[in-house]
């Protein structure tokens, strides 16, 4: 009886641990695409950086000029961003979270510097939504470039 009880406990614990392990690797291993955007916000309300060094999670810094946009892949939810304005020399360090269920978020560098929240927003690739076919106004950056393999989206 005693060993039976003990075994039941051990086995139940292991089942719980197993499920927990799935949850843990799911959360820690989840990848998110982060778009880093250095454009002016709200038609000039916050100006873009002329030249800025950005480092995420202690990786090597990448330099951005005005109107640059880049993409990177991050693993996990909590991240640290350091931006250094090469003109003024100011350095801002902030921490941000990406919600677990977001595949792609956009980070506005000017908002990070100005302290405005939220500076990380959900990004919806336009061509996946009902995109008006003749809408010439849409920014046809690299994201909406027709890819050579039509099936590879985005």
């Amino acid at each position: 009886m005693n060993t039976k009880k003990k075994r039941l406990i051990v086995r139940a614990t292991l089942v719980v641990a197993y499920v927990l392990a799935i949850a843990v690797v799911f959360v820690t291993g989840k990848e998110h695409t982060l778009l880093i955007d250095n454009m002016e916000v709200d038609e000039g309300r916050i100006a873009a950086f002329e030249e800025v060094l950005v480092s995420i999670d202690g990786r090597e810094s990448v330099e951005y000029y005005a109107d640059d946009r880049d993409m990177t892949v991050l693993k996990g939810q909590t991240h640290r961003i350091v931006i250094e304005d090469e003109i003024s020399g100011t350095k801002v360090e902030r921490e941000f979270k990406i919600p677990l269920d977001e595949d792609m978020v956009i980070l506005y560098l000017p908002k990070v510097a100005s302290g405005e929240e939220p500076y990380v927003e959900r990004f919806v690739p336009l061509e996946l939504e009902s995109m008006p076919e003749d809408d010439g106004e849409i920014d046809t950056g690299f994201l909406s470039d027709p890819s050579p393999d039509a099936e590879v989206v985005p």
Binding site: A21, I22, V25, F26, G29, K30, E31, K75, D103
Partner: peptide, 19 residues
């Protein structure tokens, strides 16, 4: 499923193994 949920690296492999 790991690729679908974008679980990468060692975690992705562990996830695939656990599932």
């Amino acid at each position: 499923l790991a690729v679908n949920w974008r679980i990468s690296g060692i975690e992705g492999l562990l996830f695939a193994a656990l599932v």
